[in-house]
Nucleic acid binder design. Structure first.
Lengths: 206, 206
DNA sequence: CTAAGAAGTGAATCTTAGTTCACTCTTTCG
DNA sequence: CGAAAGAGTGAACTAAGATTCACTTCTTAG
């Protein structure tokens, strides 16, 4: 035998893999999945299309991993916010605001991850992610209802509506909203909307 | 010359055209644009692919017309509701409920029309539709704010959020909600959510 | 240095639709 | 009826993009 992966090579391989993922992520962030063809991804990662297939068995797999990673990370952030000690309305507001801020910095990312359909495999992965994502919000709503901070309501439906509401307001490169008003104001309005929506008593204006 | 379109033929041609549109609509309603390939549409309309091209210059044109028609019809219904004499909260509730009921009968339709991206041409048409669609809700919100029935808020953002909220809660691939609770209850919850969201004072339980 | 085993390349191939078109079938009218 | 013109057919053509693979280039260990 005359070849065994050395640590150095191992490292390079991992780097390559990450480079592919991050090239894909950045392409998606700029123009949605539409822009992220294998050729484009390979190009952005500075390798050949063939090489990409050495790291991912198919385009779908690549995107599924991308999606799962991103949502996982996002959920972790949101869960952390929600676990903090504070009133339910405050925590909800903080979570929405946090998500909104991040979404605005890469307008297509949220869109692509939450909405844009690709192929059935990715779609399946998204369904799981979406459910997990919604469950974070469901949690606060449920707590708020239990503690009497929010009126009686279906946490399931409200969570879905919340996700839908800010997604639509944020993740659409298409909405006329983007340029019209300042980002700060947009975020504020969305947060207010969501808080009112679950029935939190009106918050102080900032 | 020896041939001129007779009324009978004229009629048949129109029927064919409609048959194509409705075949396409039903395919989209069942499985999104993904399921509505030209071959599938032609098959469902009982004609050859070539024939379809006699009526529509391209697939995009077909879908643009489909989308525009559907949204136009939908907007007309909603506008009528909103024009009725009633309080802003009541009108908003009625509009949301009306839309929700219809959306539930063809779970993919709302999704395909509001969300699912296809190609740039269709996307452009959707932008227009979406704007018009949102503007209906914007109108009630604006009126409600003006009359003091709703608190101060950006009608633009709220309208987008409302559209997003019920879309998310209703549209097919998106929601795990579909089977969980009764349709009536789902619609009720969504309506409540939207009403609270714009800050309408709590409505009586039904 | 060299053979063995990987990793990397990118042009060629496969796939999946949308679109075309040479041809056939219908309809109309003299 | 028969010629003219439109309507309808569906196999063949394209285009775009994913996937493959024969071949080249590295790496490692002896």
């Amino acid at each position: 035998m005359a070849y065994r992966r050395s640590p150095r090579v191992q490292q390079r391989l991992e780097d390559n893999r990450n480079r592919i993922l991050s090239a894909a992520r950045s392409l998606v962030a700029q123009g949605g999945f539409r822009e992220a063809s294998i050729v484009a991804v390979a190009g952005a990662a500075d390798m050949s299309t063939g090489a990409v297939y050495r790291y991912f068995p198919s385009k779908s797999d690549l995107f599924v991993e991308l999606l799962t990673d991103a949502v996982q990370r996002e959920c972790a952030i949101l869960r952390a916010i929600i676990a903090k000690p504070a009133t339910a309305p405050d925590r909800l507001a903080a979570a929405v605001e946090s998500f909104a801020r991040r979404a605005l910095s890469g307008p297509w990312l949220a869109y692509a991850f939450i909405i844009e359909p690709v192929d059935p495999e990715v779609e399946a992965a998204r369904l799981v992610c979406r459910r997990e994502f919604g469950s974070v919000f469901k949690e606060v709503v449920r707590q708020g209802v239990a503690s009497g901070e929010f009126p009686e309501q279906s946490a399931n439906v409200s969570a879905a509506c919340i996700v839908g509401a800010f997604t639509e307001a944020l993740a659409r490169p298409v909405t006329p909203l983007a340029g019209r008003i300042s980002k700060t104001r947009l975020v504020g309005e969305i947060v207010d909307f969501c808080c009112r929506a679950v029935g939190a008593s009106p918050r102080a204006k900032r």
